[in-house]
Design a binder for these strands. Sequence first.
RNA 1: GGGCGAGUGGUGUAAUUGGUAAACACGCUAGUCUUAGGAACUAGUGGCGCAAGCCGUGGAGGUUCAAGUCCUCUCUCGCCCACCA
Length: 820
Amino acid sequence: MKSVKKNIPAVAKNYDHQKIEPKWRKIWDKTSLNKTSDKTDKPKFFILDMFPYPSGQGLHVGHPRGYIATDVYSRYKKMHGFNVLHPMGWDAFGLPAENYAIKNKTNPVAQTVINVKRYKEQMEMIGLNYDWNREINTTDPAYYKWTQWIFVQLLKKGLAYESFAPINWCPSCKTGLANEDLENGKCERCGSVIEKKPMRQWVLKITDYADRLLKDIDDLNWPESIKESQRNWIGRSEGVNFKQEVKDLEIKFEVYDSIPQTFLAQTFTVIAPEHPMVKDLVRGTPQEKTVLDFVEMIVDKKRKNKFDVENDLEGIFTGRYVKNPFGTGDLPIWIASYVLVDYGTGIVNCSAHDERDFNFAKKYNIPFKTVLLPKDDDLAQKVKRNEVFYRQPDGILQSPEEFKGLTWSESRQKIIDYIVNKGLGERKVNYKLRDWVFSRQRYWGEPIPVVHCERCGVVPVPEKELPVVLPKVKFYEPTGTGESPLANIEKWVNTKCPKCKGKAKRETNTMPQWAGSSWYYLRYMDSKNSKALVDSKKEKYWAPVDLYVGGTEHATRHLIYARFWHKFLYDTGVVSTKEPFMRLKNQGMILGSDNRKMSKRWGNVVNPDDVVKNVGADTLRVYEMFMGPFEQEISWSTDNMVGSRRFLERVWKLQEKISDGNGPVENKEFEMILHRTIKKVTEDILGFNFNTVISALMILINAAEKVELSRDNYEIILKLLAPFAPHITEEIWANLGNKKSIHIQTWPDFDAKKIVSENVTVVVQINGKPRANFEVAVGTAQAEVEKIAYALPEVAKWMAGKQIKKVMFIKEKILSVITD
RNA sequence: GGGCGAGUGGUGUAAUUGGUAAACACGCUAGUCUUAGGAACUAGUGGCGCAAGCCGUGGAGGUUCAAGUCCUCUCUCGCCCACCA
């Protein structure tokens, strides 16, 4: 790292951040400045950071960007008289701690304690005003008691169930994973190719909440991109299920179609290779073995993830037919590699108006029909000859006869009604969202609080007996057999059935990392309650989270899971709001100075410890807020940080200008800047435009240096800066003789009278080009402005010998003259 | 393939929402002070041009007295999702 030290100016002798910053943090700690009141007499504001996973690396300068923003915002809210809840905790279960423990033969519990301590020190060093009395840790039994409690409630309501369906299995992490944990078919954590593996697992019925999760997105004050990601992830689609039967067999089934407009073009049916119906279809046929071999080949390819979606388009005819579904003939049933077994019914009717079906039919010479034609005649001929694939919203429907001439898009609802009325099928809604695979075959997670009894089957652990404490083990290695390492602890596994007192075994799977974070925000409201997840009075006061800040990477996992659990807790009466997080802001990532993600691997990591030591926490904070728009990704630049340091030094030096003279010095122009800045800062903090706040404050300081600064006005400046630079402003505030902390002062109001100026600049444009500008009194009329303008030589020059054709006048802004 | 977003000086970026493009900051140039400067302060700093002036917000059109901002087309980049019938 380039040395920061070189840029520290000589004035540092006076502004000694190394002395000031720790001093004030100690005093704030002693006076409980950051403690959140339990009284409910003031309006509340709940502002939350996505709590971190405390890794062994500690924080780099990119991490605190969001923390600083919420810190600024919460200080600002406090100065506006709000009772602010601004807490922090640790999402400490998860694979890295466990893998580290395996590698170094340490204990994840001990390692977590070390990591948390380090994170906390770093956060305190930056001057973040968290109320540490409410600190939580997902790995604390007193905390995960309630995570387990929620699971038991889900189980009781039938929203948690055991499944034996094939799931995503990471061969390297040796655990099952949820759909949300994959990236392009690979393990999000280690990058291994995921296999499909049938095994017993716990699954949460998030799909029961799909509709509400979708609908309520509309009311959230969240970034549009996140809302759109969630909508896509839920993937609601409306269509019909056609009822069909297999010719010569006693098999009935349904096929889902979300675009049934072209249903009369359907000429064949495809079924997923792994579909259970396949065996019944081909049983006893001459091609039974060939088909089953083919199926095995495809299934194996898919299981090993060697199936190439783009290029592997394979299928085989089953020898069976769908019996005349639409009165236009039987449809041959094929097995096709591209059909998904777990979407819709796993069986699909195909036509020339679906691109994949089109390509499949071409490859296997299955006959086509076309019922949708373009307006363009040449193209229509090509479509008729099946030379090109065609499906466009403005394509014209040819059949059924009743709908001939309608476009593809306008016929949709009508066709659906037609299909339903004719009894061919029923309306059906499908979702892309899958139920949440909730068990992990690993050690470092919350034990699933369930007992398997020989007689009673699955029995939840009684609420009185929660938490089921994660036992200490000698070896954390995953077994790889689909059992967690807990399975080897016989003393722990063997237990009694809570119902019949007979022999029983504990569930050895643990919960995924997302469990503890799906409800943690609630616990901050009442972090030490041993009787309830959260006291309902406290919940009613604090909920919902007013402002939530974190990275975009949680768009479709944490933020969906938490909304799901919250809605469930709403249904069970634990919480009083439908949604957990009203407003969401995403911080842009801070990259290394080489424009790459900060990582040990690239050697571009900047440690906040060094920055704080060299230039101070306040400089770090101001710089991170100033460097660019909050939501935008941006590269770190230690060189640019100097500007923020200089800015604070100038604020510091203003002390020399203050005399206890005879009150405020009259300077209208400066007061205008001051009050405009109050207005701008007040508004821009609310809008998360921190970069422009700092720049406005810089302008203000530049102006303050040029005037006789009154003590009152200096104090206003300090208050505006206090949320950003809490230490230096507190020090100067005290130097000015104030006894109480600046952070409990009232936010300054701007004086509306002082922000209006008497004069404005009017620009003169001649034929669209700005040629001159001058000051006039506010409200000066057109005639007067024209008179002044035409007298100016730089205007007269452009108008000499020309006729005025048109004059455009916008009061207090512009005089636009058009000549011939 | 689908969705979302972004393209402005040497650099990070700003622009009262259609009204003097480049505020603020970094860097750079010159000067002052200094034993010294990698400190501070002062002045300057979009491009071309001696100048008058012309050009300038990815590109091409358009609307308008006036466009970074609105419309049409287009190019480039980033992120997320992706066999979802």
